[in-house]
Every structure is written in structure tokens, then in C-alpha cells.
Design a protein around this nucleic acid. Structure first.
Lengths: 188, 188
DNA sequence: GTGTTGTCACCTAGGTGATAAAAT
DNA sequence: ATTTTATCACCTAGGTGACAACAC
């Protein structure tokens, strides 16, 4: 995942559906990033894979992303997929804009917390392994670059089309969808 | 104010500051448009003014604009000016997008309501005379058109500049501000 | 004649990876 | 040698009034 000083969105977007909430109780949804191991990674071009290369940076002041709809009744959250597309990542430890701070070349696991606003607050935290990533300031793997260019609408300018837009639209019908990672959670 | 089928923002933007709210009580802010008289208007080019010309259209199904921050604690609303820039007006009576429906060539008075979410709900409605307007599908008065072009950033393409942007920036320092109508209310 | 609609060029605002320069 | 930064062209997304065509 690309990380910049001014903050970069995640792509694909973190997204989830949830069932089992109480229709009229208030909930908040919070995302944070857990550094999965205290290791620095480097990409081996020969082996085409990431390799852990020893002790990483110290843990960073942890920031969280509060979903802008929070707090909202269960009814609202269950209307459809909950999208975290406004999350921005930065490697600037002095960031003042509230973005989530990460160390480049480190591996992260997004965590989602559901906060239930009752007389007693209840917090439940969970994560989906399919959403782990390594933060970078420049892509290390050409196939990741291609995937992002193909799937992110904002990178359309880098697509080199032997097919025009209309034809591409038809072709896309046969490709797996990949503009968000959609996970599901059953609240209980 | 221009009105279209698909919905048009208001310009200048409705905006207000409020004091006197309880810091931790929840409030919602609601805007609606009151048809000030059941009259249709036409613009007299000779007299350079609007003239009432008899009975207007029947009252329309009233729609309201709920400020997207609602509900929020008093503390939030008093942090700074509350902007209603997302309001959109339409003349399409079949509108399905939740925009506020108005009749063209009729005069309207925006109303703001503060809803206090307590054990007992309290609603207080008020309006600022400086924000009345007549809805149109095309500008009738050339001086209004000029004002909008001068002040609305999105209309920059229609400014015919004998001065470049940097020079204009300096000149603007001497002009009265007119990109929003900012009113104040003391809650009690 | 009068008012409305759809389309357009021209903007604001901001999200992409490429690239060269800089930092480490 | 490796990683980071700043800038850029090229997009998405959507807000302007002008204007010609249209409806009544």
C-alpha cells in the first residue's frame, strides 16, 4: 500500500457488511492498523517475494479512523456495505491532519472495532486476514502496479488500451471485481 | 436563485453561527423553504424590479434539508459557522433525490430549525430576512449574473479578466465578502 | 412571448502512478 | 544502493453560466 507525506488513500478500499446489530442501538465503527511483527521487510526481486530483514522501527503513536457516519443506529450500518474509503495513510510522524501513521516497509493488519453506545459501552475488535498489507513509498512489484492501474478509476490515465473504453467495459464483466476488499461480520 | 431539474446548489451559501447551546446536549439543524406569498413573480426589465402577477402555484410537498452533521452536541455546532452548502434546489416535483422542491418565479424564505434531542424534543424555528430569494430557471437580472460570476469559484471561467489572477486577489481585499450569507442566532 | 431543458466549455477539488531529484 | 520526496500529466467527480433548442 502506497504511503505519502500528505496522506494516501488505501486501494482497494476496506469495506464490510455487518448483520446482527440491534436496529435502534447506536454504534460507532473504528479502523486502526496493527503492526503485525516488529520487522522491516524488503522485496526480493529474484524470489518475487517479501523478506523480513530484522528488527523494525519502534511502535508509532497509534491513530484510528472513526467512520464519519459514527455514531449511527444499527439500522443504518446494516443498510449496505460500510466503506472506509476516506482512510488515509501517511509516513509523516509529525502529521497534523489526523491520518493514520505507519512505517514504510512494515506489515500491517487493519482492525475494525464496533463500539456499542449503551449505558455500558461495549467494544468488539476483529480483523480479516485478507486485508493485511505492507506499506511502501514506491511499488516494489510490477504486478501490483498493474493491478492498481487496471482497477483504480483514478489511475485510468496509465492504462494503455488496445481496446477502447466501451470494449473494456464489456471485458470487465468477465474479470473478478477488485476495487474493494469486502468482508462480512456477524455481530452477536 | 437558479433551480434545475437535477438540483442546483444555492449561491451564496446559507451559513450561520450559533451561541447559547448546551455543550453536551444533542441538536439537529434543519433548513426548509417557506413560500412567502402565494404569488407568481415576473421581472420588469424597464423598472428593474420584480412584480407580483397574481395567484401562484399550489403549495408543494415540503422537503427539508437535514444538516449532515446532525445530530451533534452543542459543542460541535458552536465550533464555527454552520454551512448549508450541500442544499440543492429543484423544480422537479417528481424528484427522487431528496432535494428541496420549489416553484420557479416564486419567492422563498429559508427557515432554520434547531431540534434539541432531549427526553422531550424541543424545536425552535427562525429565519433571516436577508436570505429571501426568488427561484428562477434563468437569471432575469444581469447584475445578479455578474455578482455570481464574480463571487462563485465554480463560475471563474466566465470572468473576463483585464487583470490576472494574482492582481485580482489583491483587488478582492477591498471588496465586501459575498460567497455566503452568514447570520447569527442566540439560542435560549 | 415567455419560461424551461439539455448540452457544453470551463472551472474547482482532489485521487492516480511516473519520474527525476534528493535524502539516507 | 536503497528509499523518500516533490512535481507532473492525466484522470474522476461535480459545480458554473452560456446558449440553442424546446415546450407552452
Amino acid at each position: 500500500m502506497i504511503v505519502t507525506k500528505s496522506g494516501r488513500r488505501m486501494f482497494p478500499t476496506l469495506q464490510m457488511t455487518v448483520t446482527g446489530l440491534q436496529l435502534h442501538s447506536l454504534y460507532s465503527f473504528i479502523v486502526d492498523l496493527k503492526c503485525v511483527d516488529q520487522k522491516r521487510y524488503r522485496y526480493s526481486f529474484h524470489q518475487s517475494k517479501w523478506i523480513a530483514t530484522g528488527p523494525g522501527e519502534p511502535e508509532l503513536p497509534s491513530r484510528v479512523f472513526l467512520h464519519p457516519d459514527s455514531p449511527a443506529p444499527g439500522r443504518h450500518w446494516m443498510k449496505g456495505p460500510i466503506s472506509f474509503d476516506k482512510i488515509k495513510l501517511t509516513n509523516n510522524q509529525m502529521d497534523t491532519r489526523g491520518h493514520i501513521i505507519v512505517n514504510s516497509m512494515h506489515k500491517y493488519q487493519p482492525q475494525i472495532s464496533i463500539l456499542k453506545h449503551n449505558s455500558v459501552e461495549k467494544r468488539e475488535t476483529f480483523s480479516f486476514p485478507e486485508t493485511t498489507f505492507i506499506a511502501v513509498t514506491a511499488y516494489q512489484n510490477h504486478r501490483i502496479t498493474s493491478l492498481k492501474i487496471e482497477r483504480n478509476p483514478f489511475a485510468k490515465g496509465f492504462r494503455e488500451g488496445d481496446v477502447d473504453d466501451e470494449m473494456r467495459g464489456h471485458l470487465n464483466l468477465f474479470k473478478p471485481f477488485f476495487s474493494s476488499i469486502s468482508s462480512h461480520f456477524q455481530y452477536s
